[in-house]
Design a protein around this nucleic acid. Structure first.
Lengths: 241, 241
DNA sequence: TTTACTATGTTGCATACCGCACATACAAAG
DNA sequence: CTTTGTATGTGCGGTATGCAACATAGTAAA
């Protein structure tokens, strides 16, 4: 069950050329990520970046009045800390562990050095950033136009895509915070999905039972994001040339 | 009144070192941008990038059902076509001229070559992209939590910041498309702002009369975006070292 | 001046979501 | 087994916005 953690479980690390990978390998530190752990606060200085293998990180913005909204999620397909190499120096949103698991931590300066070689790793990270931009843009659209149910479907799909399993550990309360809606709204939408046999949940454990049906009930946003990630970041396995 | 167009009116071009600027100068082509002109369609191949000097470009996503939402705006502080150097090759959203004016057009390959030198221009473009990401993220938050009036204020402020003037040529119908709300909603919000003396409008011409008051009525999103642009892209004037 | 068009104003109704209050049900700890 | 806490279910009123239909008013062309 518990798979032995391995840096190659992160798609970006997996896509590196062996020379680049070897340069970083000794500095990659395996860390356990606990649910709810806050990795970055807005405005903080970036000391490390994280390559998730089996956890999911939420990027969220918390407003002055305390209300929040998720901007994007990062899982084993990506890296947390893009503003490091984009030049921001500081983080721009809060990063919270949404699903517990493992990640590899890397010193910020080391990644920056590698990025500045302007080689395959740089190109790979920029492509990933482009995919992340698509996810953010689609989140904006989704927030404007789609119902809570549609957004919940999108959110569940994006989450299970980033885990090996069809099961999530996540209360409705937390999902509501992510989506920036009321908990009751999530309860209602989730209740419908459960009655229709698409999902099953109980006290913080959600299981997706009928994935195709969930995709149908979701808005187009899920497919747009997924397609763009697949296009920009195909499973390249060490051939990021 | 009509200022002679000059590439240096674009802040990114203005921030370049003279050696870089000189390499590009002869290939910069001044183009007139007409209101409503569509520069990119999603999925299209990028043949040119644009450096606006006196126009504003809207990046918008149009959904399957025809509804739309603005993702970000690009004016003389930026460049249209970031996915070129981010590695996407194709554009990911529709780009429409929101306010007529001028821009400098540049062959995509030339910019790509310059970007790949991994020098000051690359760092500048990445910083700009980071600022654009902030704008998109904030749009997502704003769409979730703020009223039409607040969003209208934000939108007006972001727009006039990107022009030299306090006047915009823009019907309420078009603003509604950008914000992804009903035209009536804009009419109502704009009517209130006019009654309170903050703006003046008539048949597609909007004048901002009381900018500080507009900032007060806006949500925090405007300041967040503005602060981040100012932080990442101070007026450097040829010292992007 | 008249006509036609486009932009803006207004009203009525439907609905999705919010905020609040509280009921229920499951689960872990004593 | 009981207690306690957390997760989920439900109902009620309020509000913002959506959808639709139509009125008015500038502007420009005939």
């Amino acid at each position: 069950m518990a798979i032995l953690p391995n840096p190659k479980q992160n798609h970006l690390l997996d896509a590196l050329l062996s020379t680049e990978f070897d340069r970083l390998l000794t500095d990659l530190e395996l860390v356990k990520m606990a649910l709810g752990e806050v990795l970055y606060e807005p405005g903080g200085v970036l000391e490390h970046v994280y390559f998730p293998t089996s956890c999911i990180i939420s990027l969220l913005y918390v407003m002055e009045n305390g209300a929040s909204a998720e901007i994007a999620v990062v899982g084993n397909e990506g890296i947390l800390g893009i503003s490091l190499f984009m030049g921001g120096e500081t983080t721009s949103s809060r990063a919270v562990v949404q699903s517990a698991g493992y990640a590899y931590k890397l010193n910020a300066q080391l990644l920056k050095n590698e990025f500045n070689r302007a080689g395959p790793l740089q190109r790979l990270l920029l492509r990933y950033t482009q995919a992340l931009i698509t996810q953010m843009a689609q989140t904006a659209v989704c927030n404007r136009h789609h119902s809570v149910e549609q957004q919940l479907c999108r959110w569940l799909l994006l989450s299970i895509d980033r885990l090996a399993t069809d099961e999530l550990t996540m209360t409705q309360e937390l999902i509501a915070n992510m989506l920036g809606v009321r908990r009751e709204g999530v309860t209602e939408a989730a209740g419908k999905l459960q009655r229709d046999g698409l999902i099953n949940y109980s006290r913080g454990h959600i299981t997706v039972l009928n994935r195709p049906a969930l995709e149908k009930r979701s808005c187009e946003c899920y497919q747009v994001v997924k397609t763009e990630f697949d296009r920009l970041l195909p499973a390249v396995h060490g051939i990021a040339k």
